[in-house]
Design a protein around this nucleic acid. Structure first.
Lengths: 244, 244
DNA sequence: TAGCAATGTGTATTTCTTACACAATGCAAA
DNA sequence: TTTGCATTGTGTAAGAAATACACATTGCTA
């Protein structure tokens, strides 16, 4: 087992999409006084861990994500480093760190990563019963500076989603236009006209229509699509070539 | 004197605008063998320094910026953390670190900040003769992973400049529309139609026309403008209020 | 005073964005 | 089997924004 770097951690903000809400994966943090049984701490944290000696930041983030979701090859991107000297200073957080008894500095820099997962592929409830999905607008009390980290991650996601086709990472491989629209509306907090949205996304060559249709719905079934990163990458290069 | 944190530094990518070019401030790094006089190292670095114990990242970046430019209250924004285990591994970099003889880890995480300065206000040549401005498309060999840091900073600047009125930070307090256009063209690497550019920026309420004009030019002198952050902040809030 | 070099301005064209209504589909319930 | 239901799939007109483009004005210089 490698040693951890005492003053350096990563925190992953893991986003999922379900029940027509943008969700974030949080872990419960619980501590009772061993004598009195009094509840000292009962709140939630993002998924974070210290970086190991000799480990790259990106690797540490991927490892952390794997440990909680069991997933690899997942969208994962650094967005900001949090280095306030006060970020672990609250009373609860100090109690918690003493309880963990790790060799941890009291000025830990945490590098924030955000991750987009298809939440139909991961069932944290079974492997990690302490991990739960929460709608991003209904998160409980968070430990450390994790509320700030989440806020910054959301801001970053909202920016990024308008610039690059990353929203697909949150959907199952095959999806309908409606699902895509719901997702964008959720992330950006806006509503789009259904016809205009469809017109717009249908221009994207990398959105590939399938012969397949929805099944088991009590109405006209919608056509399914897949996102082709391959086509996206190629058309993106073309654009650069022809611009100026 | 406080102690440095051995595995944590900040690097400032300091941008300036001069001679119709976007420039970056670099420091020469020179080392000769004391016996033979052989030149071991002769390249350039960004402006970086280790974070002190008990110091916030933002403070460390502002301090580093102050040390090289003598300026405070300057636009300074974090953009990415660099944590590859190999980032100090090259032979030259190892020689340099031994030479400095600081108590430094060999896995240093560096948090990148980019800064925009009005280069007419700073004359690094006098205070720090080893610091020089280089056009961003003509930088010499850079130490460590600083080429990567610079590339990422540029990418971030190009994104940011399209989203927020930060370009003004690179200009003198009073400037002409032409100067503003040259700056945007420089940063984004594009050309704009002069009339359309003017039409566009004139819509921005936070661009305040002055009675003052250019002097000492051999042609019709242009009107001068200032940027009002105050107006920008207020109109930005209005926008949010009236949206939805 | 004539020439020069850059400023300052308006309009027509095209492209993109927005607003909006109805027929078609397939399941479910009667 | 039929009817009702909910949601899909489609086109067009109006408005807004982006683009392309030419000439008179200014103040300095020779």
């Amino acid at each position: 087992m490698e040693n951890i770097i005492p003053n350096l951690s990563v925190d992953c903000v893991i986003f999922g999409f379900g029940a027509n809400k943008l969700n974030v994966l949080l872990k419960e943090r619980k501590l009772s006084d061993p004598q009195t049984g009094e509840v000292l701490i009962n709140d939630f944290t993002l998924t974070g861990f210290h970086v190991f000696e000799g480990e790259n930041l990106d690797t540490a983030a991927a490892r952390t994500l794997y440990n909680i979701t069991g997933l690899t090859n997942i969208f994962l991107e650094q967005f900001y480093a949090f280095g306030s000297t006060q970020r672990l200073a609250s009373e609860k957080d100090q109690i918690w760190l003493q309880h963990l008894n790790l060799n941890v500095s009291n000025h830990v820099i945490s590098v924030g990563y955000f991750s987009l997962v298809d939440s139909s592929k991961t069932s944290p409830d079974t492997e990690h019963p302490e991990a739960q999905w929460f709608p991003v607008d209904e998160v409980p009390e968070l430990a450390f500076d994790h509320a700030e980290i989440l806020a910054k991650a959301l801001e970053h996601l909202r920016l990024k989603v308008r610039l690059e086709p990353i929203a697909y990472e949150l959907l199952p491989e095959k999806f309908t236009i409606r699902e895509l629209q719901d997702l964008y509306e959720c992330i950006l907090g806006t509503k789009f006209d259904r016809r205009n949205f469809r017109k717009k996304v249908m221009q994207m060559k990398y959105l590939i229509p399938l012969a397949e249709k929805q099944t088991g719905v009590a109405h006209k079934p919608a056509q399914k699509f897949i996102f082709s990163r391959d086509v996206y990458d190629r058309t993106k290069i073309e654009k650069l070539d022809f611009s100026i």
